[in-house]
Design a protein around this nucleic acid. Structure first.
Lengths: 218, 218
DNA sequence: GCTATACGTCACCATACGGTGACATGTCAA
DNA sequence: TTGACATGTCACCGTATGGTGACGTATAGC
């Protein structure tokens, strides 16, 4: 006779939050819903309404304590090519692209959320979007400082490039879940991704070798 | 009293196929289903099963006569920088990227399907994937011929670059539906896209100015 | 004219969803 | 001890979905 579960609000809330993660990880964002989450948590769905005000509130809460996105420190962690090395800037940018791609491929829940963002806007996807936008901007500012370049100018040239390469990585990593070949590249193999990283590195070098590395006005 | 609709199988099939398009265009791929389509077509849903064997068959049929993707001829239409102009190859590749992006932004149903591909695999998305893969490969082969470059070598260097830039365009165009800013770029403005195209052009030029334009071994 | 078939309509099923009201029971304060 | 509140359980509602069987009725072939 259903064994009267322990009366512990905090623990139940935690179970619900963990259930969000579990459902996303195992069945994808399409499976998210009060019924599925409550079932997974072994709790009654009415508690989602009582404790979080509904599914939206639960997703918001999940978004707040989850870390779906890389930390700036991790992306800029040493060893990383610096301003005093040959082609330091372009090699540094290429390394960051590779780290970005590696992060995505290692975080399936993040990939699910990225896929979700494209299909729909909700509390979770909005939260991730704003976190990511903030981290990206901060990372670029710190990169500009690292290479002693003027921020506005750096943003103007590197920003669009990172937008393109970041978008490409997001797309390809999300598609890797279900698609093997994209434009002749094997997305589901490390070799395919190495090819992409090398190509990105060459494109970056072409730009950084030009306008960027000149230290411009100074 | 429900006015006994004309008995015309072919016309009904057409109405159902058009309803697929209408539902995708107006409510997105998430709204696709036998009920929604039948409702939109003004037909009974049982006819979807009778005439197409189910939703999957209907989507397959829709995929066959729909043209979701650009034609190679359109992407290579003149005027397009050629082998006898300065920086012909890199300007040509940049122009193709711009055309690709413009196509996407002008075809909302294609964007819906692209978004759909990321979330799910079905008859429709598989059909588009194979069409696109074929067209991309053919376009690259024809580009190699246009610039008198060896195909294998051309594919090895341009393929990954197009994979990255194409993926970026797909992602950003799909996100433009619901997201305004990505990495500081305004996706919902033509100015934002011009910025992206210029950045892509610079990255392409950096690569094409190196290994590519040397005509390599000949 | 008669009959078989094709076409379309309708009613219905089981299932799942989001959401709510009522109730039992444990805990803590007066 | 009594009463208020918090926690959890359960039954239920309306709605929507995918899917099927039964029923008309117009058309075509004999």
């Amino acid at each position: 006779m259903s064994e009267a579960r322990e009366r512990d609000r905090a623990a139940t809330k935690t179970r619900l939050l963990q259930a969000v993660e579990a459902v996303i990880a195992e069945d994808g964002f399409g499976a998210i819903g009060v019924n599925a989450i409550a079932r997974r948590a072994g709790a009654d769905k009415v508690l989602i309404y009582r404790y979080f005000g509904g599914l939206a509130g639960l997703l918001s809460a999940y978004a707040e304590d989850g870390d779906f996105w890389w930390q700036v420190d991790d992306m800029l962690a040493e060893p990383l090519p610096g301003p005093h090395e040959a082609d330091g800037l372009s090699r540094c940018l290429a390394a960051i692209f590779a780290r970005h791609a590696a992060f995505l491929r290692a975080h399936p829940v993040t990939l699910e959320v990225i896929a979700w963002e494209i299909a729909e806007r909700n509390e979770l996807t909005e939260a991730l979007e704003s976190v990511r936008e903030g981290r990206s901007q901060e990372m670029m500012r710190r990169l500009a400082a690292r290479f002693d370049l003027e921020v506005a100018e750096f943003l103007a040239s590197v920003g669009p490039m990172f937008a393109l390469l970041g978008a490409a990585a997001n797309y390809l990593a999300a598609r890797e879940r279900r698609l093997k070949i994209f434009n002749g590249i094997d997305l589901q193999s490390d070799a395919g991704w190495r090819t992409l990283e090398q190509s990105a590195a060459r494109m970056i070098a072409g730009v950084a070798g030009g306008a960027l590395s000149t230290h411009s006005t100074d």
